[in-house]
Design a protein around this nucleic acid. Sequence first.
DNA 1: TTGTATGCGTTATCAG
DNA 2: CTGATAACGCATACAA
Lengths: 341, 341
Amino acid sequence: MKQQKRTTIYDIAQKLNLAASSVSRALSNSDKINAETKALVLKTAAEMNYQQNAMASNLRKGNNPTIGVVVPRINQYFFSNIIAGLEEVTFNKGYNLVICQSNELHSREVAGVNALVNQNVSGIVISIAAEQGSSDHLQQVLDRNIQLIQFDRVLEELETFKVVNDNHKASYEAVKHLIDQGYRRIALLEGPQELHIFRERKEGYLAALRDHGFPVQEELMYANAWTKELGAVATARLLDMAIPPDAIFASTSDFAALGVLEVASAKGIRIPEELGICGYSNEPFTEITSPSISTIDQFSIEMGKTIGNLHFQEMENSGMVIKKTVNIKPKLIIRKSSQRL
Amino acid sequence: MKQQKRTTIYDIAQKLNLAASSVSRALSNSDKINAETKALVLKTAAEMNYQQNAMASNLRKGNNPTIGVVVPRINQYFFSNIIAGLEEVTFNKGYNLVICQSNELHSREVAGVNALVNQNVSGIVISIAAEQGSSDHLQQVLDRNIQLIQFDRVLEELETFKVVNDNHKASYEAVKHLIDQGYRRIALLEGPQELHIFRERKEGYLAALRDHGFPVQEELMYANAWTKELGAVATARLLDMAIPPDAIFASTSDFAALGVLEVASAKGIRIPEELGICGYSNEPFTEITSPSISTIDQFSIEMGKTIGNLHFQEMENSGMVIKKTVNIKPKLIIRKSSQRL
DNA sequence: TTGTATGCGTTATCAG
DNA sequence: CTGATAACGCATACAA
């Protein structure tokens, strides 16, 4: 297997008795070049199988048309959708996407961000890991004038664009819906409160209770129930109470809601008659459980596109815009698990 | 917002009254440098907030430690799992991952591959789009001595490593299982036969019928039913036959199987008593439908890891290894939708 | 061990 | 319109 040398602009310049600079101009579609020579160059370039060396070009131009993405997990519906939406936008602009997953680990998040900085990417899109630490790595990104866009799980104190769902509102509406359906003891499955999004969801829950004259009962709020397994455990406990809840809002995820559903079904509790359930995220499976699970759609694909557009818009304005927070309005999807009227 | 210049090795060389080469050596942990000066360089580099310019380094070294991935859709469970598994391996080796999605379009696949070639990536991992065309773009990858690994949907004629499931065997076993459960008229939902994987699955189906003395009946084989909607349409047709099938093997996907389940349920057909169903891919939702859907697990995360390992292994052997096909053995997951004994 | 010089493949600047 | 030349930031062969 021979190591084949790539053909460079010099090779094709030599062949045509031209200067490399002319070849470069032809290839970059400059207007400072004769139309005929341009055509000739293009033709021979194709013949010689020329492909530009992006690294050299980017080094010279001092910028790298790629966007780095750091997410907790690539293979989660929400995140892979964000990426898919983002890719849609970046592809059309000729930008590349470099992906890192933090696995919810701060150290890996830092490593990923640094790798992206080293590559001189034009922007970094991030949703921070559950395990948190110093935000120096992100501050560095800003110092180096790399566009930084946070989404979903954001660090508020950093002055960046943020694309988030209105968690408070979504949560409020979910609880209001449960109240409207006649549920009176509504339990909450909480996520890690270090993450902003979960605090907001809790506040939305509390606000809805307050606004409708319901008492806040500590024993109905169950911390850290954000997987199917933890949701199941939480449900078992809640249903064992002297006066158990008549509805459970799994503000953490649909997976937690699924845990609720399975445990409750196993106990022979009728849903939605005896127990209302609402999840969060509109995972595909919520549509096909029995009963189907009410949930909140976060418009993840649109979010990805919004992030991409924001990046290019900010680039054009070269960072002179005020970094604002874009709120994607989530939508309550009412299904059978919470409809008893 | 000031455009901040990145500090380079020259900056830190100047500050320390050293040559840039010495700084470079210190930073790259060379042994041809005094331990003290190395420590000094490292220290000041940190102080000056130095980050290596990967593009310059890669250009000089003539290689780019990143792997490009081209998949039809990022946000599909199977593919995002492949990526997650792959990322696990590449991260540990300090490699980056660049992701492109073809959206099942040949033109986008070509564009993606070319972009990756331009970036001089060390390897490309691809699962080809349903819409097929010339394979010149992939041949180019080989000509340029870039590692090419195909997975799942592969072009057989190309001499590359291939990581695939044994589709034939999985399909065979699924059908055998249905036969063992006493089903006698087993229908097949086929995928686009241009794709190798779907031809193999069909052959597995045919082989199983043949080996068990069942006649092959053209009217039981339904082409191009690889989405939930198409699966539903196919099912409606099949169930309307004079002598309808008593089992349906959705060899295309679990989504198609879901379409089957929904249509059959709506018609009041009892599953698995009157109709057996088996899907393909072990999507998370197959576990929670009612009844749960029998399916085939492809071990996607492991596949991703295998691909990664293969890349590095091949790199070390500098391509002298014979390009073989790695067969990941899929596993039949028997659930309620096909168990009536 | 350290410094000097050169080149990786492009693009931008300046003359012609 | 075209050619010569420098520079992007780093790594290496060679000399000291």
